[in-house]
Design a protein around this nucleic acid. Structure first.
Lengths: 223, 223
DNA sequence: ATTACTAATATCCGAGTAG
DNA sequence: TCTACTCGGATATTAGTAA
């Protein structure tokens, strides 16, 4: 989404177009937004095409409502700014889209040597399985690499009869501003740096009512 | 400030350029921001000219830090989005620049008939004087008019020997996210709609360390 | 390596106007 | 009135380079 369109969407939100239909006209909007009627018209068309707003255009004006997708765009910026501006502890916000990964992680989580460490070091018994987030921007990928340079909580490697299990680094995290869990960065993972793996004491898909493709925000604490 | 430059400033904040010098190069930034090196270079020059960032440019890279002015721009959006997205009660955020008004208001606040009403209806004894904010955008002026259509807390008119004193409408407000007070909309005021007047139980300039020209954010509750 | 200029290209805006 | 088209001009971006 282009900055200029985001800006118009943002201004629509200031006019409360997210909670009720905003009854207005392109002329009136142009006036308050310091743009021309034509530009407003074009912006609204583009925002509608992108699914950011719903409109009811009539011959004597129009009604505008910001869609859930549009709200997501606003939230993304809001949550990011939250940690930028209110970082009491240092933390970073990631945004990713949920996808179904290979189910291998669930198996690892049940290994007693790992599980015991999670309980001791993170303070919770992890639900067997990880939430896989495909990071939505290059920025987050770069940030993930930076996060990985921080100490974090080390989950040590171990070996059993069959093979060696590698080490992992965990960082306290808050998922969608609600659930406490951890981001886990594994040394040798099947995923590249564009994926963030999350664990939590609960079944996140259930508790947060998530499905594949949903946008998820994760605040990772660097302690 | 243009949306496109705001966007770059915002992205710099995601890279934590507000808390420490960001050591990078235009080429590297271009890569993570999905722009070209030339565009990044130009954006940085413009942001610096606007005083949004400080830079140390050398022949093998540069250091970037977001200035306080730049942080203000980010905060403006953040506080606005806060009430848009987290409005449990309905509320609206205003942004204005502090200026010294005529001192007349201080006199009114001391009139016993007014003062008594403030204590009874707003629950606090107002500091004698109002904080005058010059609203920074047409959007806020429009919002102020809309707020004025809401009921609010009525401070009734009265007359003494000398003259009649008009009525005023008050709305619970939070100033800079910290101090509780009220926005007061007076029927016949010396100011036009581009000014928002704030009262509070404390001396806001002192408590919030404000001086003329400072940006102030006010969350007005519509109850 | 860098940053940032110039010139060419692409995108965006707004005046005029149709429907 | 309204929305939204066309198109010329304004603005932003990028390719090519200089320093």
């Amino acid at each position: 989404m282009k900055p200029i369109l985001w800006d118009t969407l943002y201004k629509l939100s200031l006019l409360r177009a997210h909670e009720k239909n905003l009854k207005t006209s392109t002329t009136e909007l142009a006036d308050t937004l310091h743009l021309t009627q034509q530009t407003v018209s074009r912006h609204l068309i583009l925002l509608e095409k992108l699914g950011m707003i719903d409109r009811l255009v009539t011959v004597r004006g129009e009604e505008i409502k910001i869609s859930n997708k549009g709200l997501d765009e606003l939230k993304k910026v809001y949550y990011s700014l939250q940690t930028v501006l209110e970082a009491s502890d240092k933390s970073v916000v990631f945004e990713g889209r949920l996808f179904s990964g290979v189910k291998e992680a669930a198996y690892y989580m049940t290994l007693e040597s790992y599980r015991k460490q999670f309980v001791e070091k993170l303070g919770f018994d992890p639900y067997p399985g990880t939430l896989n987030l495909k990071l939505t921007s290059q920025i987050y990928i770069k940030l993930k690499k930076e996060v990985a340079t921080h100490p974090g909580t080390l989950i040590e490697s171990f070996r059993n009869k069959k093979r060696t299990y590698g080490l992992a680094k965990c960082y306290q995290a808050k998922i969608n501003g609600k659930i406490d869990g951890a981001a886990i960065i594994v040394d040798r993972t099947h995923y590249d740096d564009s994926v963030l793996e999350i664990i939590a004491p609960v079944y996140l898909r259930g508790v947060l009512n998530l499905k594949d493709g949903d946008l998820v925000h994760v605040e990772v604490k660097l302690a």
